[in-house]
Each structure stands twice: as C-alpha cells, then as structure tokens.
Design a protein around this nucleic acid. Structure first.
Lengths: 205, 205
DNA sequence: CAAAAAGTGTACTTAGTAGTACAGGTATGA
DNA sequence: TCATACCTGTACTACTAAGTACACTTTTTG
C-alpha cells in the first residue's frame, strides 16, 4: 500500500491515544505527583519502553493529556452560543448549558488539575486560560452586544460568567453534587438578575 | 514555678508552631504529594525524630496546617459583616472586603490546596467547607434579611457570593493578579446589579 | 520472504520517600 | 543537684519513583 497514512502511523497514533486515555484517568484521579508512569505502563498492558517511545517524559505526557481535555472543553463551549441573538429564553438556555458544561465530570476534574498544578506548570495554565475562559467571555460578550452597548455587554458578561463559575466553585468543595432542581433554581435567579439590567426591547439606533 | 503553663509546654507549643509554619509554606508551594517530611526537618534545623514527636504522620501535620489556615480565614470572614444592617454603602464595603479576603495570598493558596487535595482527604474538605463557605453564607443571609424576606435574602446571597467567588476563580488561572481599579470596577458593577433587586426603603411590616 | 520499525519483558540505575531506632546532648522542674 | 522530658544527629529499613538498557518477538512494508 502506498497510502499517505500507512498502518504503521495509524497504529502508532492509536497506541498514543490509548496511553493518553489511561494517563488522563490516572492524572484526574490521583493528581500529577501521585500518578506513576510505571502504573500507567502496567494498566496499558505494555512496558515502560513503549511509554517513553511516545512521550519523552512524564511532563510531556501530562501536557498531552491537558491539551486534549482543553480541546474537548473548548469545543463544548463553542457549541452553546454560536450565532445566537439576545432574547430572554436564549439567555436562559445558554446559562443552563454553560452550567452543564462546567459541571461535567471531566470539566471539573480538568479545572481541579489546572488549579492545583497551574503554579508549577505555567504553560498549562496559559493553555487552559486562553482556550477556555478567554474564549467563553468573547462568546458571551458578542451575545449581549446584539442588544446592549459593547461596554455594557462586557460588564454583563463578567457578572454572568462570575455567577456561573462561582456556582461551580462551591460545588468543588461540597460533599454532594447539586440536584437538578437546585441548578435550575440557580439559573432562574441568575437570569432574572441579569435581565433586570437589560431593556425589554432593543434600543433602536 | 508552679505555673499552670511551664516552660516545658511552652517550648513544645512553640516548636509545634514552628513546624506548622514551615510545613504551611512547603504545602502551599509544592502541594501535598511533593512536600517531603525530610525537607521540612531540614528546614527546621532539627531532625526527623522531632517531627514525629509532634505529629504522628504526614497526614496529621497536613491536617494541622489546614486547620490553622481555615481558622485564620474564618476569623477574617467573621469580621466583615458582624452586626451590620443593610444599606448600599454597607453592601459595597462588605463586598470589597470579602473580595479582599478571598484574594489574600494565603486564602488563594488554601483554596488551591483544598481543591486539589479535597478528593483524597474528605475530612479536610468538610473542615474547610463548614468553617468557610457555609459560615460566609449565613452571615450574608442575615445581612440581607435586615431588608428583604428570608427567602429573597437567601437568593441574593447565593448570587452575590457566586459573583465574588467567580471573580476569584478567574484570578486563579490568570497570569497576573488584577489591578486595584479592576477590582473596584467589579465591585461597583456587582453592587449595582444586586441593588437593582432590593427596594430603596425598608418595606414596613 | 527479508528488512525495518515498533512493541514487550525484565532487569537495572539512581534517587527520593515515610517512618524507625538509638545513643548522646541539653534544657527544665522539683 | 539530678532525674525527666524533650531535642538532635546519624544511620537504618523498606519501598517507590523516573528513566535506561537490552535482548526478544511481533507486525508492517517493500
């Protein structure tokens, strides 16, 4: 076969993905320091040599894990608000979805990991920040800007995002996860509060 | 001397405090797993035997560290809202102070540590949660309840606290800390948003 | 089929970990 | 003064980690 992608490269990529998958679970569960490469190799079924054939070091593997998760998170965020115009129902829908994204198991674990290891791995912190929060804010500002001024949209975005991420902050430390009803009640009062600061009809220019 | 507190106990307490102090810095800087008891002993100047004379294990020492920090954080929180009645200036002052408390170096590091190790040490998570967030919310509800109904006060507290902790969430991941002006602007818009949902005058019962 | 590339198993090096044991030193308290 | 309680240094056990070396087998490719 003279395929541009031979079986060689395909298998290699598959193996790599498998390693990243196992490593993700381990880093998520035990944190960076308490995850051991030997344990990953064992779970993989293969040997350590295979691990080092794909990643030069533990840090390299960690970076690959975070990169993948950030990507998936970033995609989730993207899908919520693309080409939406402001309306109260659209706002409510968006808030509920954002909250859902942020409370997903993987998103919580990613956040935990970035918060705890960010100090020691600045490049990981930046990777997450630019593709996560920064992007999110841009989307939300655009959404509000379809109804209010850019300055006001920025202000509202900041408050709205703060409320949603603040809710997550609490979840991180709570013994049990919040009920559906609690989440809905929170979104309702959040939306009510935000809409108080927005005129019912678009101001004609 | 027949003092109830002899030099013996005093010295012991001092040594203990010194150990906790060094351990605090190390846990804050490197996290739980990456902090070594040997390193603490070395920095202490003493020997490992001394460490184990005061704390039965690394986990014990860690718990003592968190306990002390939670206490100090809890006291800070207490001082902000004691016997305050609702008014817009009081609200603004309280928000500014809460934000200041939450953004203190030690509070941030404590939060980081509790978030990252909370999964592995549930008792630490609970210790922090009950003496931190739970207490804070109670104070804020009481404050709002001097003006609005209890139910409404609960709702407003949730939103207000979410906004403030959400601001911190962002800080945790940002490359640089926020300017004074940014903090003030945030508090201003937060206060404006909250006060929209509160009558200017107390409703006569 | 044969060469090349990748994966595997095992054993290894080097270094660091929590925690222990013990002998000698030093401050305290009666 | 003198026993007690604590502190210190050193050496130790038992274990685990990251990363390497190497001979071996399997799979892919031409």
């Amino acid at each position: 076969m003279t395929n541009p992608i031979g079986k060689r490269e395909l298998n290699k990529a598959r193996k790599r993905a498998e390693i990243v998958d196992i490593a993700t679970r381990s880093f998520f569960e035990h944190g960076y320091a308490a995850t051991s490469m030997s344990a990953i190799a064992e779970e993989l079924g293969g040997s350590k040599a295979t691990l080092w054939a794909h990643f030069a070091s533990k840090q390299d593997l960690f970076a690959a894990v975070i990169d993948l998760q950030v990507d998936s998170f970033s995609q989730d965020i993207d899908e919520v608000l693309t080409s939406q115009t402001y309306s109260v129902p659209a706002l409510r829908r968006a808030c509920a979805r954002f909250l859902e994204c942020l409370l997903r198991e993987n998103a919580i674990r990613l956040f935990r990991l970035v918060v705890s290891e960010g100090g020691r791995f600045p490049e990981i912190k930046e990777m997450f920040y630019s593709r996560g929060p920064v992007k999110l804010r841009k989307c939300v500002i655009e959404f509000f800007a379809t109804r209010v001024s850019e300055a006001r949209a920025t202000e509202l975005s900041r408050l709205m995002i703060a409320m949603i991420t603040g809710f997550r902050s609490d979840i991180l430390l709570r013994p049990s996860s919040p009920s559906m009803a609690e989440r809905e009640a929170f979104v309702d009062s959040l939306v009510e509060m935000i809409t108080r600061g927005i005129p019912d009809q678009p101001t004609p220019s």
